[in-house]
Write a protein that binds this DNA or RNA. Structure first.
Lengths: 214, 214
DNA sequence: TAACATATCCCCACTTTTGGGGATAAGAAT
DNA sequence: ATTCTTATCCCCAAAAGTGGGGATATGTTA
């Protein structure tokens, strides 16, 4: 059975050349070709593609929004983005929205067929430079959480108490959970407030989660 | 000036064959070759590599921990991981720890030189299947935050109130901030509790942050 | 040994939050 | 025209949290 492919691109010439390119491959067929994404969900419901080629820049609704919609309604569809520039944020947004891979338009002739095959095989084709950007984004939250964890110097017990609080337990419940008295919980909380420079449970919870302390 | 490369791999044969492979390229030179990572930071301080090839599985300390240490002490070093298997979690951990790229040991002969070049050029070489796994990990938090934001159907006003609470304001302060009465704040909070299925400020704050509502 | 950190517990008075009602007005949806 | 949603406000009594004091015991460090 051949791979069913749908194309979304506002440039008719590009759609045609992609269609031509794909038609040279016996294992693939173009089942739809659309110049806008306004009805992308319905379009895909009709032509039932396995893989969607989506231009990142589309008139009306952006390709990124379209990805989000498509993935929501038809989560099994694999989406391959195409773009002219390697634009950090747009690429990242597209991937977050549910795109599985990436090709530059310059490379279409050389890499499109391979990219489609890789996508179908469970991979995510993307240029190394895009991969680096994705990785960079991924590493930011890790850096925050790992570097600041010990800045506050909470003791193990204080972390336990804080974790309980973050999980929604009241002082009483924390006391029961940790087999200590209500007053001991209070003592720990007081220390936590000092160390975190906060003055209420809500602030402590917010800081604990945002800074990755728990 | 040629690229300075250090190798960390517990298998001597592999180190030798990598050295041989690299020596065929005039733009690269192996400046260090080590069978363990116990002194990796000192080793790298001495031989000053631009790029480190690190086996993900090392005796004593794992390659992942080594990556973390190296990146902490020598953040400019680019690290290329090598592994036998495409192990989701380990790969992901290595990348979070600071690795910039990835090659399978099977592919060394074909891809190592290219991978090193790409790494140095600012890219992140990795197989499409690894890229997919990285993307998958990346999409998890996004999916939670983007898909559940509207699930709770908080009104704009309720979101404002919740945001204030998350920022550590008390009911009184929220009232002052939003120019409404204390009782109105309470009404909103009650509604928020219902919609979020929580019963305390701390739970609301935790849920709001974790689910990306604010 | 003395100073320090951790973990445990206690009291009082005060503030804040919570649960349970209820009410009004403006605007959107049926 | 009526229902629904949103946003606003009110009261009371109970529960929970906060601030500012203490105290004791067990270790570790200097």
């Amino acid at each position: 059975m051949s791979l069913r492919i749908a194309i979304f691109d506002d440039n008719k010439n590009i759609r045609q050349s992609i269609t031509l390119l794909i038609s040279t491959n016996p294992d693939m067929e173009v089942v739809g070709s659309f110049g806008n994404v306004l009805n992308c969900v319905n379009d895909c419901l009709k032509c039932e593609p396995d893989i969607v080629l989506m231009d990142i820049q589309m008139p009306g609704m952006s390709g990124i929004e379209a990805v989000q919609l498509l993935k929501q309604e038809l989560p099994t569809i694999q989406i391959l983005m195409q773009t002219v520039f390697e634009d950090d944020d747009r690429v990242f947004d597209a991937i977050c929205a549910g795109a599985s891979g990436y090709v530059l338009k310059d490379d279409l002739k050389n890499k499109l067929i391979d990219a489609i095959k890789e996508l179908h095989f469970g991979g995510s084709p993307m240029s190394p430079s895009i991969a680096r950007k994705v990785i960079n984004k991924l590493q930011i939250p890790e850096k925050i959480s790992k570097s600041t964890v010990n800045e506050y110097k909470l003791t193990p017990r204080e972390k336990e108490v804080l974790l309980c609080i973050v999980n929604g337990l009241s002082y009483k419940m924390v006391a029961a959970e940790l087999f200590i008295s209500y007053e001991t919980v209070r003592s720990h909380i007081k220390k936590i407030y000092e160390k975190l420079h906060v003055a209420s449970l809500t602030e402590a919870v917010a800081k604990a989660i945002k800074q990755g302390i728990v």
